[in-house]
């Protein structure tokens, strides 16, 4: 047993890639937008991901956490994230400035089943931070407009100031190839010209939904799921055409650390995107 001992693992899936913050600015008081590029230009351009996937971002001295990718793979090179300050990693991340380094690992997770969504009407319902993963879906659908039928967006926030991507969405809403509805629970500005009410109050505005040909996509705070799912079911959208993306604690992203387990499903490998039919079998859901 006297052999030279040198460990040379060919690849280490746990090792992040150095990346720079290209742009960062606040979307709301506690949610910031981060545009990030992997420092190695070749790797930046070859970083392929799918809508609904996530990446691990590490901040020196604070650690690593999973974040939904908010940009669309149809615009390669830059990765965008919409991040709420909530813990140690994000607090430190919020102190970083443009050109500062972070670490990026990924992409991880299954992502949305784009092929199954093609040709369908896409009904996107997002609330609060649910905009983080679903902005990727929305932009992807718009970038590949011909691949999809109707694109319907319902977006809710507590107050106008808390609506993520408010200006971007108000702009997109003007397009005539998209049906967009924005709502706030309450308007404290007196200048809000869109709907007031919880996101489910937007459903009566939808006309001529063809449920068999519709894919419903939902992401938002836990309390929102229950009510939005009921609305989807009222529209008769089949349970396997209702898609949602779930949040769990994650330390590895590759099915080893155990934290994201729901029953015996690892959210990082088999999720975070599940159909409502998938999750009716899962006991520890939202």
């Amino acid at each position: 047993m006297n052999t030279e001992n040198k460990i040379t693992a060919q690849s280490n899936p746990f090792l992040p890639e150095p990346a720079r913050i290209v742009r960062t600015y606040p979307l709301t008081d506690d949610v910031h937008f981060f545009q990030v590029r992997i420092a190695d230009m070749e790797k930046a351009l070859s970083f392929r991901y799918e809508i609904g996937q996530f990446a691990m971002i590490s901040v020196l001295g604070a650690g690593e956490a999973p974040f939904s990718i908010s940009s669309t793979p149809s615009r390669p090179g830059l990765l965008e994230f919409c991040i709420r300050r909530a813990g140690a990693v994000t607090s430190k991340l919020f102190q970083l400035k443009e050109n500062d380094f972070v670490g990026i690992r990924g992409p991880y997770g299954n992502g949305f089943p784009v092929e199954k969504m093609q040709g369908k009407d896409i009904l996107i319902v997002m609330g609060g931070l649910g905009a983080a993963p679903l902005r990727s879906v929305l932009l992807y659908c718009l970038d590949n407009r011909d691949l999809f039928g109707r694109i319907i967006l319902l977006h809710g926030a507590k107050r106008p100031a808390e609506m993520l991507f408010r200006d971007e969405l108000l702009d997109i809403k003007k397009r005539d190839d998209l049906e967009g509805y924005l709502t706030v629970d309450g308007d404290d500005t007196g200048q809000w010209t869109e709907n007031v009410g919880v996101v489910t109050t937007l459903f009566p505005k939808l006309e001529n939904i063809n449920p068999e040909n519709t894919v419903g996509v939902v992401c938002g705070p836990p309390v929102m799921y229950k009510f939005v799912l009921q609305e989807f079911l009222k529209l008769d959208i089949p349970k396997d055409q209702i898609l949602m993306t779930l949040e769990r604690r994650m330390k590895c992203g590759v099915g080893k650390c155990g934290h994201c387990a729901i029953d015996y499903i690892y959210t990082c490998l088999e999720g975070p995107v599940f159909s409502y039919w998938d999750v009716t079998h899962m006991r520890e859901l939202i």
Binding site: L60, E64, K251, C257, H259
Partner: peptide, 18 residues
């Protein structure tokens, strides 16, 4: 097999042990 990951800054150095 479950594990946690922690960023441990090394005192007096500009790097961390993960």
């Amino acid at each position: 097999n479950c594990y946690n990951v922690e960023d441990r800054p090394v005192l007096g150095k500009d790097f961390s042990n993960i």
